[in-house]
Design a protein around this nucleic acid. Structure first.
Lengths: 141, 141
DNA sequence: CGGCCTATTTATAAGCT
DNA sequence: TAGCTTATAAATAGGCC
């Protein structure tokens, strides 16, 4: 769309590349705005120049955040950042800890003992005896 | 860019709107690809049709995830705030559950009994007795 | 840089199948 | 509904300031 036709491959001349980026970046943001208005579509665009400068567009009445949330639900792809991963990992870790305690509690309450080995039963018995002993000492005071 | 000029406002005819969406969506994705190649730019585009169908583009050699990470760093805007909050809330909830179980376990093991009321001590004693009873029944089999 | 200009290339609106 | 066509509107390459 210009004085000459260009091939779609990296523009080697740094200056031309910058100029073309600037023009086309504006073009894309404009197109994004147009389709969102014309077609009632939700659009999110994020562009970084090769120099690392950021430009973005998001359709009115929503937010990039909401669009991306929808993207994840819809595509099944996960966009989480590192923080999310670490939070998710922590949840997994705590839940596991939780499960283990749950099991230990049940055992101490005499539940779910069927799958245990005699040795394990003895350890539980000792724990219960110790508990009772400590308790009685406390009650004696 | 067509047989007639159109105003940039919502296309009321549902059928025309769908057709225009389809054409322009392709146009934007093409433009996004072109600028990423021509100008060595990182581009991410997410589009939802008004019917909720998803289309997206991401420049080669990166990922939406990485682009968004960069977006957050660069813009200072937090995209995942809501998600973070809900994950953090879940962690808090589980941790509290965790703490309660921790305390119950300690009590059953005869620890940290100082602050308890006689009534509570009796409940623990009953729990321990019940546990032992169940255990002995199991061991007797 | 960021605009302006304008010859050309592209995108696309409307129509047709 | 999805393509294909074509007249026309828009985008933009290359210049210039």
């Amino acid at each position: 769309m210009g004085r000459g036709k260009i091939e779609i491959k990296r523009i080697e001349n740094q200056s031309n590349r910058q100029v073309t980026f600037s023009k086309r970046k504006n073009g894309i943001l404009k197109k994004a705005k147009e389709i969102s208005v014309l077609c009632d579509a939700e659009v999110g665009v994020v562009v970084f120049s090769s120099a690392g400068k950021l430009y973005d567009f998001c359709s009115p009445k929503t937010s990039l955040s909401r669009i991306l949330e929808k993207y994840q639900t819809n595509s099944g792809k996960i966009l989480w950042d590192e923080k999310h991963k670490s939070l998710s990992a922590e949840i997994d870790r705590i839940k596991k800890e939780n499960d283990n305690m749950q099991i230990e509690l049940r055992h101490l309450k005499g539940e779910d003992l069927n799958s245990l080995q005699p040795k394990e039963l003895i350890m539980i018995e000792e724990a219960l005896d110790n508990g009772l002993t400590s308790l009685h000492e406390k009650q004696a005071l």
